[in-house]
Design a protein around this nucleic acid. Structure first.
Length: 224
DNA sequence: GCGACAG
DNA sequence: ATCTTGTCGC
């Protein structure tokens, strides 16, 4: 694993990211959520993608792919570890989403190519990064009130938003993945908020991957 | 040199 | 990310 070469590749690919809205829809019909986890002590990569109908936010499809892990976790190089699994899950989808939320950062990354951006480029789909922790950049302190937000800045450049999606919960870090502006990224995430810390697409992807009770209940209510 | 560091 | 029960607080 040549770290320097991978970093150079990130800088190169980051220039291909479309930072403005080039969404082929006035309103998306399907929004997806993607999440990656690991099994067998990291030897197996498990990627899950959940597809929700918009604006009902009802789960309509999910796919899980398991492949041999290709790389160790290195902060800043996450996409090289997670994209192979995400691609495998993506190819299994019957209904591709118009917009995809990815667990992790988009352009709020040292070289502006977080997993949400990298995957968006790979499959050429609009993506938004929804991360639970900061990777880089700084922001003004957030108030305790749910809904409070602050721009995530790297010097003079805004690379994302820090948004308290729910009271008494740590904020989320939202950023452009690909083909979605920063303002729209935050807007779509807000429109998929249903009272939990994570927006529905990402929340369902996690529930599917981890076999959460809510997902098991959905399976029972949706035979076949 | 020291601390930070998505999942 | 993952290993894991109860527990504190709204």
């Amino acid at each position: 694993m040549d770290t320097q070469a991978l970093k150079a590749e990130q800088k190169r690919r980051a220039q291909e990211i479309v930072h403005v809205d080039s969404l082929p829809f006035a309103e998306p019909r399907f929004i997806g959520g993607a999440d990656v986890g690991f099994e067998q002590e990291g030897a197996v990569t498990r990627a899950a993608i959940a597809i929700l109908h918009y604006p009902s936010l009802q789960l309509v499809e999910f796919q899980i792919a398991r492949i041999p892990t290709v790389m160790p976790y290195v902060p800043g190089l996450l996409s090289f570890r997670e994209c192979p699994g995400l691609l495998a899950a993506w190819e299994k989808l019957v209904q591709k989403p118009d917009l995809l939320f990815v667990d992790g950062h988009g352009i709020s990354h040292p070289r502006r190519l977080g997993v949400a951006s990298h995957f968006g480029l790979l499959v050429d789909v609009p993506t938004i990064g929804v991360a639970k922790k900061r990777l880089c950049g700084q922001s003004a302190p957030l108030s305790e009130a749910p809904g409070s937000q602050s721009a995530l800045m790297d010097h003079d450049e805004q690379i994302g938003w820090v948004w308290r999606s729910k009271a008494r919960c740590n904020p989320l870090f939202i950023s452009t993945g690909h083909r979605v502006s920063l303002n729209s990224a935050l807007m779509w995430v807000k429109r998929c908020q249903q009272g939990y810390r994570l927006p529905e697409p990402t929340r369902w992807a996690d529930a599917v991957a981890s076999q959460r009770p809510a997902f098991q209940r959905w399976l029972r209510e949706n035979p076949q």
